[in-house]
């Protein structure tokens, strides 16, 4: 069985640093257009912000329902990605041609800009959900072995 750390320093630092990681993940996701980063990195950072409390407080520190069913969220991320790709196909363009996205009052380049952000959100959800799901499955297995 994996023992949660019984240390005030670790517990306090986890409480302080978790929202900072989430904020940074959001920054990496939204700023992927201008600076290094994007869906994969942001997703991993989001996953880290969920996994860190589990490391510090043990499996009781998790939301358990969210983590156990996280893989469903991963599917939703893929659906979002593929859905944004399919919309232009229905409206007479090519698959994943964001220039044909139905956003009114915008030039094609601006539509592509928002299309990229949309699929990056999909990638973020999938990567974060998958990482959390794998970690939680392994962890739960480790806790279960002792019984």
């Amino acid at each position: 069985m994996i023992q949660p750390l019984d240390s005030v320093i670790v517990h306090t630092l986890t409480r302080v640093i978790t929202p900072v990681i989430q904020l940074f993940a959001l920054y990496v996701l939204i700023h992927g257009h201008d600076s290094p980063g994007g869906g994969f990195q942001a997703g991993t950072l989001f996953a880290a912000s969920v996994i860190l409390p589990i490391i510090a407080f043990g499996i009781q520190g998790s939301l358990s329902v969210l983590e156990r069913r996280a893989i469903i969220l991963g599917g939703i991320g893929i659906l979002l990605f593929a859905g944004i790709g399919l919309l232009p196909l229905i409206l007479g363009g090519e698959f994943l041609n964001y220039g044909k996205l139905p956003i009114p009052g915008m030039e094609a380049s601006a539509r592509r800009h928002w299309g990229i952000l949309g699929i990056e959100i999909g990638v973020t959800i999938t990567v974060a959900a998958t990482a959390v799901s794998i970690y939680y499955s392994l962890r739960e297995r480790g806790e279960g072995e002792e019984k």
């Binding site: 257009h33 994007g38 869906g39 790709g85 380049s109 699929i119 999909g122 990638v123």
Partner: peptide, 25 residues
């Protein structure tokens, strides 16, 4: 000019080669 995205890597990954990224995900 085409994608309104200063980071070329993001433009290539998510737009020009979006299909590859879908596969990776």
């Amino acid at each position: 000019e085409e994608t309104d995205t200063p980071n070329v890597v993001t433009a290539v990954l998510a737009d020009y080669r979006g299909f590859d990224t879908l596969g990776e995900t």
